[in-house]
């Protein structure tokens, strides 16, 4: 037996999952099903879509309508699913590499169109599955298999990127702040348009080890000490925010959803 939440929403014959000891992805996956449970959504009306990477193994464990697609293309498949059946609650589970590197173009256009999709990015700052290559969210100066002397690239702020492209809801939480993560996923699902939740996960096996950041507990303590809630940040002087990152609801500005606008066009011809 496992908890009633896990028994209810997971494919029990696929558990335990194969993520590494201390990998944060299980915490994010649980947060997604907890959010679905609290919203009391009809699971038959949910479709969970992923791309490729450690993150994208998640739908294999989740007992919903699920689709495991090609690298970076989860949002392209999800766009098609939403168009074919706008009644579905489409949830994309992706990683920092899948979503912002190979899938970056799909991300900006799904956001631009305000597609009715909730995207949860399992952001562990590295490509875990393929052996620790640096990703667009590996902090500048940090190491990866492909950046043995330190990464000279600047990092993507995924929430700012999505917002600039047209997302109507963005938020960030970490696996330490899992309660907040559940709330943001719920609010992201409630938003009719494109929502993006940047879920900061931990990768002790590659990111932690290559950067001598310690085990999951130490990395989560770092997340606890360096995350500042956006509500508190507005009251802090800039020097207190140096080196910190923001968590909480970062943007919430509902706009007409794409498939609803599309339906209006179709209906305008059917009236004639």
């Amino acid at each position: 037996m496992a908890s009633s939440l896990i028994e209810k929403y997971m494919r029990m014959d696929k558990l335990p999952h194969i993520w590494c000891p201390g990998c944060g992805h299980g915490i994010v996956m649980r947060a997604v099903v907890k959010a679905i449970d609290e919203l009391e959504l009809n699971r038959e009306k949910i479709c969970i879509v992923s791309g490729i990477g450690c993150s994208s193994r998640a739908p294999g464990y989740m007992n919903f309508n699920t689709l495991h697609t090609t690298h970076g293309r989860a949002l392209a498949f999800a766009t098609g699913i939403k168009h074919a059946n706008p009644e579905l609650e489409v949830i994309v589970l992706t990683g920092d590499g899948d979503c912002t590197a190979i899938g970056g173009n799909h991300l900006i256009h799904a956001a631009r169109r305000n597609m009715g999709i909730t995207t949860v990015v399992f952001n562990n700052n590295i490509y875990g599955m393929t052996g620790g290559q640096y990703s667009p969210t590996t902090p500048t100066g940090d190491k990866g298999t492909t950046a043995p002397y330190g990464n000279i690239d600047k990092v993507f702020d995924i929430c700012s990127l999505a917002q600039a492209a047209g997302a109507t809801y963005t938020g960030r939480a970490t696996v330490y702040h899992a309660q907040l993560l559940i709330r943001l996923i719920k609010d992201g699902i409630k938003n009719k348009g494109f929502s993006l939740i940047d879920a900061i996960s931990v990768c002790p096996t590659y990111y932690g080890r290559k950067n001598k950041k310690g085990d999951s507990v130490r990395i989560m303590e770092w997340l606890k000490d360096n995350a500042v809630n956006v509500a508190a940040a507005s009251k802090l002087p800039p020097e207190k925010l140096a080196g910190k990152f923001l968590i909480g609801e970062l943007y919430n500005n509902p706009q007409p959803e794409y498939t609803e606008e599309y339906k209006k066009i179709v209906e305008s011809f059917q009236r004639g």
Partner: peptide
Amino acid sequence: CELRCPDFAIYLEE
């Protein structure tokens, strides 16, 4: 503990 266990290995019975 249940909230942050990545492996669903600890939980509170309802």
